[in-house]
Write a protein that binds this DNA or RNA. Structure first.
Length: 828
RNA sequence: GCCGAGGUGGCGGAACUGGCAUACGCGUCGGUCUCAAAAACCGAUUUCCUCACGGAUAUGAGGGUUCAACUCCCUCCCUCGGCACCA
């Protein structure tokens, strides 16, 4: 085994890991804010073992931190654990290990793995969200939200996962199934706590515009999720009743074409409306049937439209016509007002429904290209057009009419302009144990109140029984539930729900600045100096949930003066997944690549290098063990290069005449410095930066072999090349770089040295190879001095024998010269 | 259906602002070393024709603009991700 190693990574790696810790390379004083750079990786949930896919995130972050360090920044790179959550509790129910024990065990395993990867952090700032010193402040934020009316409790239909035995936020339901375990989600009516994120909908949407350094796709996903639409809320008078019915529409221009009204089966007016109608029992039965189709069934696929007439009518305010009220299964209670004005001619869903129940279709927007006929149209016309059958609005374009009719409605008080969002309030109650207890107390005399600040944290009792009941285990802990009312000191009960773990993770990045502070969640002044985060790195799977919640909580903290900024993350980078055998790595698929064996056989630097070289980091990439071996061989070549380098006689004196070979190598060195620096500054182009260094290594190896064969003046440039290679590689492969740096005779850590800058004069090519095309096809190449005149170049090209074979006997129509790039002759 | 990203050798992928397509790595083939093998090193490698020189051909498909197109424009196909009866 020993001889098979290309270099002694197994001794080098622990040596430098220990060195970095002892030197406190990553430990910083946040009071020193000059030249600060906050490099943040999304903190992980502590699962049992990391695979190479997880590693990508940490490796990228580590490269950025080390590179910025070498660029002279005061880098804050902290790490922590998002350590409340369901898996630990489910494991406790199954295996009987307390969540706290298994979580803390997993944390220490993960820390060991991170350390093995050579990924370093300021561990003095570690934040663990399941410990009281942290969740005390999560509870404190809850209290602040409650005080501002942004945390409230209501009875609501909620998403219930029968397998996890808990409720889920809308964001955690994926295709009608639980985000975590993929079990189909059902609906349950429960009293739940919510955060009023909808109060911030407009700002969360508008401020996406400020996030210029975020990936477009993340912003689009958030915008779609918030789902803003502007329209008019119309008050329809119900015929024969002293009530109105509100309908939201974005197409008020189609009001004259409304031929029926449709209500969601859950609409609160339904029972009143059908009272006394012809077949009350039959109608009620039909409605009941629609209600029983769960929300999920309704949203899964386009199910057949169904509906029933209520026997009632509303009056269309614009023309006083009677319009029938129907109940329809395609109307959602939780969007808009749960009732719509249906315009079959101009909305496909209404059209389908009208066809099925033979309801009238009236064209009110005509297609300017081809006039519409209500009787023969096959589908709704949803485009813009010209107003018809719309009284005084006839002849206007629909866009103009939209505004005019909206104004007319407000003037006549038929309705008002409003904005609707798809975003729902954030359901944060969980009937589970392993989360931060919601700090509320219920007193029979004094009512609902928050736990006073001085009594925080509300500690999670350690001794509980884990049962798969679907009810919070806290309910059965008498010492926990029974408490005193903070006001009247009489007997009172605690809230037994805990908070969604996304609450924990929506403020942790603030805690890292002053992680030990115990009288406040964080120091506002220091936080204002360090945030917004300069670079946030994490998975695309958090595009909506975590990133939206964090933005919301930051805006809230900004509003109450706790922070001085309203967006937490300036630059966001979302890395792609590492795929194996065409699928995301997961234990159940059995395609997990563990870093342990790879690190044992090839070393951490190989795993790091391959992970970075595999492809553009924002894209998914297929893992290949063979590919990883290629990275190992490369490191072996670099190692040998450093070992076999000729004794440096000192650099060639500047200005001294050097050979062409030496000059070529020097040019390559400086071109590579330029390329790597630009790749790291301009984006996260690690893969191309590494291939540029590989090219330099190849050229340097050739130059060294040539120098060994026929010694010349190359030693000085070779030394410069080797030193540059080691520095340029260091952020990617820090252990081997430190070792080689040391063997080059350097004393300090390589990360204390300055990142090289390139010499503009050295990268200038003085001889150029100019491709020559004839009629756009490459026919020859000419070598010319870079300062050649255009005339001289033309002369040379025309003298070129290869070119001549292609142009002889033909007339030159055009002679295109792109200076320093290419020549193209057009002949006929 | 809507929104977003993408489609380049056997594979992962390069290519600036329209200017030598296929860098770098993997794999494969050949060679060196070895009794032999592995490892390592050196060389070849879009495809087709050619002993060779060389030529033709190719960036999902088709068309267009241009002296010149992976890059710009139009039409279409496919893959991945998100949202989805949102009025």
């Amino acid at each position: 085994m020993e001889d098979e190693r290309l270099y002694p990574f197994n001794t080098i790696e622990p040596k430098w890991q220990k060195f970095w810790r002892e030197q406190r390379l990553f430990n910083i004083d946040t009071k020193n804010t000059a030249n600060k750079y906050y490099c943040l990786m999304m903190f992980p949930y502590p699962s049992a073992a990391l695979h190479v896919g997880h590693g990508r995130n940490y490796i990228i972050g580590d490269v950025v931190a080390r590179y910025k360090m070498m660029r002279g920044f005061n880098v804050l790179a902290p790490m922590g654990f998002d350590s409340f959550g369901l898996p630990a509790e489910n494991a406790a129910i199954k295996g009987g290990i307390h969540p706290k024990t298994s979580t803390l065990n997993n944390i220490s395993t993960m820390k060991r793995q991170l350390n093995q990867w050579g990924v370093e952090y300021d561990w003095d700032r570690e934040v663990i969200s399941c410990l009281p010193e942290y969740y005390k402040w999560t509870q404190w934020i809850f209290v602040k939200l409650y005080e501002k009316g942004l945390a409230y409790k209501k009875k609501a239909f909620v998403n219930w996962c029968p397998s996890c035995k808990t409720v889920l936020a809308n964001e955690q339901v994926v295709n009608g199934a639980c985000e975590r375990c993929s079990t189909e989600v059902s609906q349950k009516e429960l009293e739940q706590w919510f955060f009023k994120i909808t109060a911030y909908a407009d700002r969360l949407l508008a401020d996406l515009g400020k996030l210029t350094e975020w990936p477009e796709r993340v912003k689009t996903m958030q915008a779609n999720w918030i789902g803003k639409s502007e329209g008019v809320e119309i008050d329809f008078k119900i015929d024969g009743m002293d009530r109105t019915l509100k309908c939201f529409t974005t197409r008020v221009d189609t009001i004259y074409g409304a031929t029926f009204i449709a209500l969601a089966p859950e609409h609160p007016l339904v029972n009143t409306l059908i009272k006394g109608c012809k077949d009350e029992a039959g109608v009620l039965k039909a409605i009941q049937k629609m209600r029983n189709e769960s929300k999920i069934e309704r949203s899964q696929a386009e199910i057949a439209k169904e509906g029933v007439f209520t026997g009632r009518y509303v009056i269309n305010p614009v023309n006083n016509k009677k319009v029938p009220i129907w109940i329809a299964n395609y109307i959602l209670m939780d969007y808009g007002t749960g009732a719509i004005m249906a315009v079959p001619a101009h909305d496909q869903r209404d059209f389908d429904f009208a066809k099925q129940y033979k309801l009238p279709i009236e064209v009110v927007i005509d297609n300017p290209k081809e006039s519409l006929n209500a009787g023969t149209m096959k589908e709704a016309y949803t485009e813009e057009g010209v107003m018809v059958n719309s009284a005084q609005f006839d002849g206007l374009t629909s866009q103009v009419a939209m505004k005019k009719i909206a104004d007319y409605f407000e003037e006549k008080e038929f309705g008002k302009k409003t904005t609707q969002y798809k975003l729902r309030d954030w359901l944060i109650s969980r009937q589970r144990y392993w989360g931060a207890p919601i700090p509320m107390i219920y007193c029979e005399k004094c009512g609902v109140m928050t736990v006073p600040a001085e009594d925080l944290p509300v500690l999670l009792p350690e001794s509980v029984e884990f049962r798969p009941t679907g009810e919070s285990p806290l309910k059965f802990v008498k010492d926990f539930v029974n408490t005193k009312c903070p006001k009247c000191k009489g007997p009172a009960a605690r809230e037994t729900d805990t908070m969604d773990t996304f609450v924990d993770s929506s403020w942790y990045f603030l805690r890292y600045i002053t992680p030990k502070m115990n009288d406040k969640p964080f120091d506002t002044d220091l936080v204002n100096k360090w945030l917004p985060v300069d670079q946030y790195i994490g998975g695309i799977e958090h595009a909506i949930l975590h990133l939206l919640y964090s933005r919301f909580i930051t805006k809230f903290l900004c509003d109450i003066g706790m922070v001085g900024f309203d967006e937490p993350f300036k630059n966001l980078f979302t890395q792609g997944m590492i795929i194996k055998d065409g699928a995301k790595m997961s234990k159940s698929k059995g395609n997990v690549v563990s870093p342990d064996a790879l690190i044992r056989d090839f070393g951490a630097d190989t795993v790091r290098l391959y992970t970075l070289f595999i492809g553009p980091p924002e894209k998914d990439a297929e893992w290949s063990d063979r590919g990883a071996e290629g990275s190992y061989r490369f490191l072996g070549r670099v190692w040998r290069l450093v070992e076999k380098r000729p004794a440096a006689k000192g650099r060639a004196a500047s200005g001294a005449k050097i050979s062409k070979e030496a000059e070529d190598l020097k040019r390559k060195v400086h071109q590579t410095i330029k390329k790597v620096t630009e790749d790291l500054d301009g984006g996260f182009h690690f893969n191309t930066a590494i291939s540029a260094i590989m090219e330099l290594v190849n050229e340097t190896t050739d130059a060294m072999n040539a120098e060994a064969a026929t010694p010349g003046d190359g030693a000085g440039v070779l030394a410069e090349a080797i030193e540059s290679i080691v520095i340029l590689l260091s952020p990617f492969v820090p252990h081997i770089a430190e070792e080689m740096w040391q063997s080059l005779g350097k004393e300090n850590s390589i990360f204390k040295c300055k990142w090289p800058s390139y010499d503009k004069a050295a990268i200038v090519e003085n001889v150029l190879t100019i491709p020559v095309q004839v009629n756009g096809r490459l026919r020859s190449k000419v070598e010319v001095p870079s300062d050649i005149s255009e005339d001289k170049l033309k002369e040379l090209v025309l003298a070129d024998p290869k070119v001549n074979t292609w142009i002889s006997g033909k007339a030159i129509k055009k002679f295109i010269v792109i200076p320093k790039k290419l020549v193209n002759l057009v002949v006929q």
